[in-house]
Simulated assay, not measured.
Amino acid sequence: MSNGSRHALGVVAGLLLPPLIAVGLWYGIGDIQLRSGQAFELSWLGVAVVAASAIVLAFLAGSRVSPIASLLGGLGFTALGALPLLEVGFGLRILPDRWLPGVLLAGFQTVAYTGTLLFVGVVLLAVSAFPSRWRSSAEPLVYSPAYAPPTSSPYLPQNGPEDATRPMHRE
């Protein structure tokens, strides 16, 4: 896969997956919280939605598609996670009162005011900062016999399947 297509897929994944992760996390946590508070029972649907959101988050953080995906997601989660902390720290009212339905609002308030959204955002930003994720897969080196030293080096690959996993040639 070329770098251009890899980064284009990263932009698409970075724009589509973080909102799905956020809504799944908010709904799952809100459903678990409301169901356990009202009926003293565990919401298996909420647990399944949180688990599915965690799987998608792991894909976003660990895939080799492009670090742009985790960078866009990390910027969004960090900004959204910093808003409630600014409200608490400075006493400002930044977020509207009723901008989400009941279950989603309860889940958002739980994960936002505990700092979980900010944590997820910083993790995604840190994952996208590794230089190895920005490099494409390296092409294998080709050793030309014209440049080979007169004596065979033990570090160069040897002909034959038995030396494929050995670090040095043994006679």
Rank of each mutant, 00 (worst) to 15 (best):
Val65Ala: 09
Arg170Ile: 02
Val88Tyr: 10
Trp99Asn: 05
Ala51Ser: 15
Ser2Gln: 09
Gly30Lys: 02
Tyr143Val: 12
Ala13Met: 14
Leu20Arg: 01
Ala8Val: 02
Gly10His: 06
Phe59Lys: 04
Leu42Met: 11
Asp163Ala: 08
Ser66Arg: 13
Val50Arg: 02
Ser5Val: 15
Leu60Gly: 07
Leu42Trp: 11
Gly102Ser: 13
Leu105Met: 13
Ile55Met: 12
Gly91Trp: 05
Pro145Gly: 04
Leu42Gln: 09
Thr78Met: 03
Val11Asn: 06
Ile94Phe: 08
Asn159Lys: 14
Ser128Val: 11
Leu100Thr: 14
Phe108Pro: 01
Leu75Asn: 07
Asp97Tyr: 13
Asp97Cys: 00
Pro67Tyr: 11
Val120Cys: 01
Val103Cys: 04
Pro101Val: 07
Val50Gly: 00
Arg98Cys: 06
Gln33Ala: 15
Pro84Arg: 00
Leu57Thr: 08
Pro84Asp: 11
Leu17Asn: 06
Gly76Val: 10
Gly10Ala: 04
Ile94Tyr: 08
Thr114Arg: 04
Ala129Trp: 05
Ala138Gly: 12
Ser70His: 07
Leu117Tyr: 03
Pro167Met: 09
Tyr155Leu: 13
Tyr155Cys: 06
Ala146Phe: 14
Gly89Asp: 03
Gly37Glu: 12
Arg133His: 09
Ala79Trp: 13
Gln38Asp: 00
Pro96Met: 01
Val111Gln: 15
Trp26Asn: 04
Ala54Pro: 06
Ala82Asn: 04
Met1Ser: 13
Arg6Thr: 05
Phe130Gln: 03
Pro19Cys: 13
Thr78Gln: 02
Pro18Thr: 08
Ala112Gly: 10
Val49Asn: 03
Met168Glu: 02
Gln38Thr: 12
Gly62Leu: 10
Val11Met: 12
Arg135Ser: 15
Leu86Ile: 13
Ile55Leu: 14
Leu141Ser: 08
Val123Ile: 15
Trp44Leu: 06
Pro19Thr: 12
Arg135Ile: 05
Leu15Tyr: 04
Thr114Trp: 04
Ile68Met: 11
Ser132Gln: 14
Leu156Thr: 13
Val127Leu: 10
Arg166Thr: 03
Thr78Pro: 09
Tyr147Gln: 11
Leu105Asn: 06
Asp163Cys: 05
Gly24Ala: 07
Val120Glu: 00
Ala164Ile: 08
Thr110His: 11
Leu42Tyr: 02
Leu71Lys: 14
Val56Lys: 14
Thr165Cys: 02
Gln38Cys: 01
Phe40Val: 08
Leu17Asp: 05
Arg133Gln: 05
Leu86His: 07
Ala58Gln: 01
Gly81Glu: 12
Gly28Val: 07
Asp163Met: 01
Pro154Ser: 14
Ala129His: 00
